[in-house]
Design a protein around this nucleic acid. Structure first.
Length: 194
DNA sequence: TATAAGATTTACT
DNA sequence: GTAAATCTTATAT
């Protein structure tokens, strides 16, 4: 078990980081409850040149400010008034790159996850960025947390072979025009390819 | 100050 | 498959 160091998040290529994050263990610790899961799906948001990104066109507001922080912090924001979406901020200061975590495979603390989902059962693979944040207990007020701190962090876990990786366009960003077609989504599927 | 829209999820027809 | 829920943030008066 080794917590990822700061320099992992400072790499220049956000798409590469999104790929590297597959198979890593995302761990949260709130109120003494540890929950964790293997990251099985990510999406890269390529800063100012990406129409799907909140930071497109170098838009710098109170909300996106944290994306301009140097890599290694959390960017969590509220979508549709209901869902907290969790992102990992990457690259150097003033470069608003981020990776959205879209799904995880629950590992530790499943009973806490159940509690957070009103007792409903937790599937073997939690899909959807809103659900990921929910089961891990991540709230939009957690934005800006240091991923090298002791509330949210990421550890090395399994190594993902390239044959277990699917690369597809991103989801739910139709409004981004041609940028919605970019192959910035990475899925870790352990199934044997048919 | 007021209004519009969103990196979604869930329930229902 | 379609639509409603729901509230913060950004942008316009």
């Amino acid at each position: 078990m080794s917590k990822l160091k700061k320099d992992f998040y400072l790499q220049q290529d956000v798409v590469m980081i999104a790929r590297e994050l597959l198979g890593k263990l995302l761990v949260t610790k709130f109120n003494g409850h540890i929950t964790s899961g293997i990251i099985t799906e990510t999406e890269a948001y390529n800063g100012v040149v990406d129409k799907a990104s909140h930071a497109y066109g170098n838009r710098r507001t109170k909300r996106t400010e944290i994306m301009y922080h140097r890599g290694g912090v959390a960017y969590v924001y509220l979508c549709y008034g209901i869902h907290s979406l969790f992102n990992v901020v990457t690259n150097e200061k003033d470069i608003p790159h981020a990776v959205l975590i879209r799904s995880v495979k629950p590992m530790d603390g499943i009973k806490w996850m159940q509690q957070r989902r009103d007792g409903r059962k937790i599937s073997a693979n939690v899909e959807g960025p809103g659900n990921v944040s929910k089961v891990l207990g991540i709230h939009y007020s957690h934005t800006g947390l240091d991923l090298c701190g002791n509330s949210i962090w990421i550890e090395d876990a399994v190594h993902v072979e390239e044959k277990d990786m699917m690369i597809t366009p991103r989801i739910g960003v139709d409004y981004a025009g041609e940028d919605a077609l970019l192959p910035y989504r990475f899925v870790f599927s352990q199934k044997k390819e048919k």
